[in-house]
């Protein structure tokens, strides 16, 4: 019995749950709308999922450490505006500008990480602050006006196609392959789980937890910037209002994908599925001509449902665990506590 529960609660189990939900949604949608299963529409869904998807890979790491990052939408906007400025206003080399933009994103992630590990501020507060700072700087730099008309080479980032597949989708897949391997096969990934599993134990095992947390936030900052490039390239415009409310979509994707907000458990594949679920729902509701106002309501309900399922599943486990704990306490019965 215990073994079954152990399995059910493993990340594979959770990812399976999200995958089932995704497939179910697709089946329902394909019956509801004849357009849903067309190649163009499927590619469309994938393309629309890329922004959330790319950032969710990093956010997964952060949430596994037990943290949160609210600044991703603002960092996305600021770094895309600055890159756009370098390219359009100063005429710098496109790839150099993209590279610098990503560095800027990573820098704000680094700031988050340093505040969280050195001061230390709670992640919610630190990233809330940076969210305001980055968004404000984007407005300051652009004066509120969009920067547009990019060279073709830059637009490729958002609009390019490789065969039938949009380039951003390829980019997302590459990001996921890298982050999956990092999470499962490298020290960084292992320590990410360890920190979220029990930070105190990790510290006492000699892990420089501060350093690894900072790396994780920096990576997410870089991914936010990358998503910012893709968005600007797709729209052929960088704006200071881009990515408003984006952080909540990203967090939602991670949570729907089965990564627990209390840390220590989860995985990037689930987050990818979570991003796709959100993409399918949005797309499906569009096809069904549901107004964007109602879409927000429905997405909100989906997030609540996903977290409720997670909590209920945990609760189930907790009930079993206390039963088992009785046995452990039994050993303790000899000396329950020092009185």
């Amino acid at each position: 019995m215990r073994r079954i529960l152990g399995k059910a609660n493993s990340s594979i189990g959770k990812e399976l749950g999200a995958l089932t939900a995704l497939i179910l949604l697709c089946v329902i949608m394909s019956f509801s709308s004849p357009h849903f299963l067309s190649l163009t529409n499927l590619m469309n869904i994938l393309r629309q999922s890329t922004l959330i998807g790319i950032v969710a890979a990093g956010m997964t790491f952060i949430i596994i450490t037990g943290g949160i990052d609210l600044s991703v939408g603002s960092v996305l906007s600021l770094s895309s505006c600055l890159t756009a400025g370098m390219i359009v206003n100063y005429g710098w080399n496109v790839w150099l500008s993209v590279f610098l933009g990503i560095i800027i994103g990573a820098f704000f992630g680094l700031l988050n990480g340093l505040m969280i590990t050195r001061i230390p501020l709670p992640p919610f507060i630190a990233t809330l602050g940076i969210m305001g700072v980055a968004r404000g700087l984007a407005f300051v730099y652009t004066g509120g006006a969009p920067i547009y008309t990019f060279p073709e080479s830059f637009k490729y980032l958002g609009q390019g196609m490789i065969g039938p597949i949009p380039f951003p989708v390829i980019l997302m897949v590459v990001v996921y392959i890298i982050f999956y391997i990092m999470l499962k096969r490298t020290k960084l990934g292992r320590y990410t789980y360890a920190i979220g599993g029990n930070e105190e134990a990790a510290i006492l095992s000699g892990i420089p937890t501060g350093r690894y947390k900072t790396i994780v936030y920096s990576l997410t900052g870089a991914l936010s910037a990358l998503a910012g490039m893709v968005l600007a390239a797709r729209l052929d415009a960088a704006t200071s209002v881009a990515g408003d409310g984006f952080e909540l979509d990203v967090i939602a994707a991670v949570v729907i994908g089965g990564t627990s907000l209390s840390g220590g458990q989860g995985g990037v594949i689930g987050s990818l599925i979570g991003a796709l679920i959100m993409g399918v729902v949005r797309n499906g509701l569009n096809l069904l001509l549901v107004s964007s106002h109602w879409q927000r309501v429905i997405l909100g309900l989906i997030i609540l449902a996903a977290v409720t399922v997670d909590v209920l599943r945990k609760k189930g486990v907790i009930i079993k665990a206390t039963k088992f704990k009785g046995v452990i306490m039994g050993d303790q019965g000899k000396r329950p506590e020092s009185l």
């Binding site: 360890a194 599993g197 029990n198 105190e200 095992s205 220590g264």
Partner: peptide
């Protein structure tokens, strides 16, 4: 509280 990552596998706890 200080020794183990309870929600992580046996293997990871030993090799950390």
């Amino acid at each position: 509280r200080q020794g183990l990552m309870l929600i992580r596998p046996v293997k990871e706890n030993m090799t950390i």
